[in-house]
Nucleic acid binder design. Structure first.
Length: 261
DNA sequence: ATGCCTTTCCCAGAAAGA
C-alpha cells in the first residue's frame, strides 16, 4: 500500500500536476492540504477518472484538506473534538479531515502557520496541536494501522532546516512547537523519516522566492506520524522532490510511504 | 540544469504563506 501526503497550494492551480502525479506515482491514499477551494469545488470528476474517490473539507480562499483514495473512503470526520478556531474560538477553519481507507485510518492535517511567535496565530497553532493530540490515544494504541500526516509547519530538529541561523526567533523551529511534536511521539506515534532522493536532508518545502529549491534552501515540515502497527509495516519512505521541479509546482513536495498492509 | 514567488480574492493590490 502506498500512502502519501502533499501540500498542493491550491488544487485548482495544481490540477494538471496532481493528475500527472497520481498517474505516475499510483498512491493508494493521497492526503492533500491547502486545497484553497470550497468543499464542493474540489475537482472530483477529474480525480475519479483515474479511479480515485475524494473526501474534502474546504472553505474557499484559504486552508482546505482532503483525502484521495483508490482503496475506499469510509467514516469521514471533519475537524476533531475541541479544535480551536481563529481569530475567535467559534470560527473554525478547514484544517483536518480523517477517513478509513481500506485497512488504514488516517488524518490529513494542515497545521496553522503561527506567523511569528508573538502573533495570536502562534498561540492558536499550539492550542490546535494540543487539542489534536488529546484526541488520538485510542487510535494510536489500537491494532489498526493509523497515521496523522500533513503539513505540520514545524521542523522537528535543526537538521530539518537548511540553515538554523536563518530561523532564530522564527516560527516553525521554536521549543514549544517542537514540544508539540514530541507530544505525538510520547503518545506512541513514530516519525516515519523519509529518504531524500538527492542530498542529505529530506526537505519537503522550499520557498518560491530567491531560487530556494535550486540552492537547497529547504525545510522538512511535511510529516508522517504512524502508530506502531503501521510503522512495523513500512518498507520505504521518500520525498518526491521531482514534483517540486518544472512548470507550476507547489512549493511543497509529496512524502511517500510504502507499507505492507 | 531543477531556475530566481505564488495564489486567492477579482481586475488592484492586499493578504497570506513559512
Amino acid at each position: 500500500m502506498r500512502i502519501a501526503t502533499w501540500n498542493l497550494n491550491s488544487v485548482t492551480a495544481r490540477l494538471p500536476r496532481l493528475l500527472q502525479w497520481l498517474e505516475e506515482s499510483e498512491p493508494d491514499v493521497l492526503c492533500v492540504q491547502e486545497t484553497k477551494v470550497a468543499g464542493d469545488k474540489f475537482p472530483v470528476a477529474e480525480v475519479a477518472a483515474l479511479g480515485y474517490e475524494v473526501a474534502h473539507h474546504g472553505q474557499g480562499r484559504w486552508n482546505g484538506v482532503g483525502i484521495i483514495s483508490r482503496v475506499g473512503i469510509a467514516d469521514v470526520v471533519t475537524d476533531f473534538a475541541q479544535s480551536p478556531g481563529f481569530p475567535e474560538s467559534d470560527i473554525k477553519e478547514a484544517r483536518a479531515i480523517a477517513a478509513t481507507c481500506g485497512p488504514l485510518r488516517i488524518w490529513s492535517l494542515y497545521v496553522p502557520n503561527g506567523r511569528t511567535p508573538d502573533d495570536p496565530h502562534y498561540r492558536y497553532k499550539l492550542e490546535w496541536l494540543k487539542a489534536l493530540s488529546g484526541t488520538l490515544a485510542a487510535d494510536v494504541h489500537g491494532e489498526r494501522p493509523f497515521a496523522i500526516v500533513g503539513d505540520f509547519n514545524i521542523a522537528p530538529t535543526d537538521d530539518d532546516v537548511w540553515d538554523p541561523a536563518q530561523f532564530v526567533d522564527a516560527t516553525h523551529v521554536t521549543a514549544p512547537e517542537r514540544g508539540a511534536l514530541q507530544q505525538f511521539l510520547d503518545l506512541g506515534l513514530h516519525d516515519v523519516f523519509p529518504r531524500p532522493l538527492k542530498g542529505d536532508h529530506p526537505y519537503t518545502y522550499w520557498d518560491y522566492r530567491a531560487g530556494s529549491f535550486h540552492k537547497g534552501w529547504g525545510m522538512r515540515i511535511d510529516l508522517v506520524y504512524a502508530n506502531t502497527t503501521l510503522q512495523k509495516a513500512v518498507t520505504d519512505a521518500y520525498v518526491d522532490r521531482d514534483a517540486r521541479k518544472g512548470k507550476g509546482p507547489s512549493d511543497h513536495a509529496p512524502v511517500v510511504v510504502d507499507a505492507s498492509l
